[in-house]
Simulated assay, not measured.
Amino acid sequence: MQGKWIEVKVVTTSEALEPVSGIFYSLDVKGVAIEDPNDILQREQGPLTWDFADINLFEYGDKAAVVKGYFSVEDNMKEIEEYIKEKIQDLKGLGIDIGEGKVEVKAVYEEDWANNWKKYYKPTNIGNKIVIRPIWEEYQAKEDEIIIDMDPGMAFGTGTHETTRMCIEALEKYVTNEKTVFDIGTGSGILAITAAKLGADEVIGVDLDPVAVDSARQNVELNKVHSDIKILEGNLMEVVDGKADIVVANIIADVIIFLAEDVKKFIKDNGYFIASGIIRERSQDVVNKLAECGFKVEEVNTLGEWVCIVAKR
């Protein structure tokens, strides 16, 4: 028997996907999955790990959207359910169309989604020459393309989410030979592996979640870049020594704001901090904090409802 988790499902609208997701992020959620009828591919999303894919886009009709949050069985689910219901009503009071706004809670097992989602994950072209290829898919590489083989398992990072795509595009722009890159919250290791294949001399990926660490290490082996990458379990400030030319963090706005001051200690002079996982509504908060900490914001890129900020130390 695989691990047991508690799934909280909110039936809503495409308009309300981001604010409803924000409700989950204010809790100790272990992962979030989105089913959007306006986006035929389910989007992965989460500050740490998990690519849940209990995919049935039209389970609630062709106009309903669904946000699912996953919690530990040890969590106080009655309290969490009431909190989510209360916040959904708050969104309604703000004039946001929440649709049905129905909240459902059930226990689920890892094997329920471990394989079903794979049929939706296809080779993905990103930037000028990066191709993310799931290991079960055939793909004939074109000239000059860089292939990243991925089996994300239960770790966040397939390359399909807007935040991951923007981080990869930024790495493609800023990574050159002999650069050192630190990847905070490495998840499946996709950004660390991309940096190594782009020519970085040294790459360190860190994650607090042992599931993510195991997934990242397996993907490093798949891509035969184990001599260039170290994957470490823990907090950047506690397990990494030295400084990088580039630090990338695809997490969430609140964590980036929290890290902004300390992360400077790990970036060389004139080095870059690539930060994503930021919803549009929080981008200015992150820009302000980075400026306050002495960073010069070089780029603010958007894709969908998400933002990626590149700041120079």
Rank of each mutant, 00 (worst) to 15 (best):
K4Y: 14
W5E: 04
E7F: 03
T12D: 01
S14F: 10
A16Q: 01
P19K: 02
V20S: 04
G22K: 03
I23L: 05
D28A: 14
G31I: 02
G31H: 00
A33I: 02
I34D: 00
I34T: 02
D36N: 06
P37D: 07
I40H: 11
E44D: 14
Q45V: 11
G46C: 04
G46F: 00
L48V: 15
T49L: 11
L57G: 07
L57I: 10
Y60S: 03
A65L: 01
V67Q: 00
K68Y: 00
S72N: 13
S72T: 09
S72H: 11
S72R: 10
V73Y: 08
V73R: 10
E74Q: 14
E74V: 12
D75V: 09
D75Q: 08
K78L: 14
K78E: 15
E82L: 13
Y83M: 10
I84N: 00
I84Q: 00
K87P: 04
K87D: 04
L91C: 07
D97V: 05
D97L: 02
G99M: 07
A107D: 15
Y109E: 10
D112G: 06
A114S: 15
N116L: 15
W117R: 08
K119I: 12
Y120S: 06
Y120Q: 10
K129T: 13
I130M: 01
I130K: 01
V131C: 04
I132E: 00
I135N: 12
E138M: 14
Q140H: 14
Q140E: 15
Q140S: 14
K142G: 08
D144E: 11
P152T: 08
G153F: 03
M154L: 15
A155S: 09
G157F: 00
T158S: 10
M166R: 06
M166Y: 04
C167F: 01
I168Q: 06
Y174Q: 02
V175F: 04
E178P: 13
E178F: 11
T180W: 01
D183W: 00
D183S: 03
I184Q: 01
I184R: 05
G189R: 01
I190E: 03
A192L: 09
A192K: 04
A195T: 06
A196Q: 04
K197E: 04
E202C: 13
V203S: 06
V206Y: 00
A216E: 04
A216M: 07
Q218D: 14
H226R: 15
H226P: 13
D228K: 15
L232W: 08
L232G: 09
N235V: 11
E238V: 07
E238F: 09
D241Q: 12
K243H: 08
A244H: 04
A249Q: 11
N250I: 01
N250S: 09
I251S: 02
I252H: 08
A253Y: 00
D254S: 13
I257G: 05
E261W: 13
E261F: 12
D262M: 13
V263A: 06
V263N: 02
K265T: 13
I267G: 01
K268H: 13
G271C: 11
Y272P: 05
I274H: 03
A275H: 06
A275E: 02
A275I: 03
S276A: 15
S276M: 07
I278E: 02
I279W: 05
R282P: 01
S283E: 09
S283R: 09
K289Y: 05
K289M: 09
L290V: 07
L290N: 01
A291P: 11
C293L: 08
G294H: 11
G294Q: 13
E298T: 11
N301F: 08
N301L: 12
L303M: 13
V307E: 03
V307I: 12
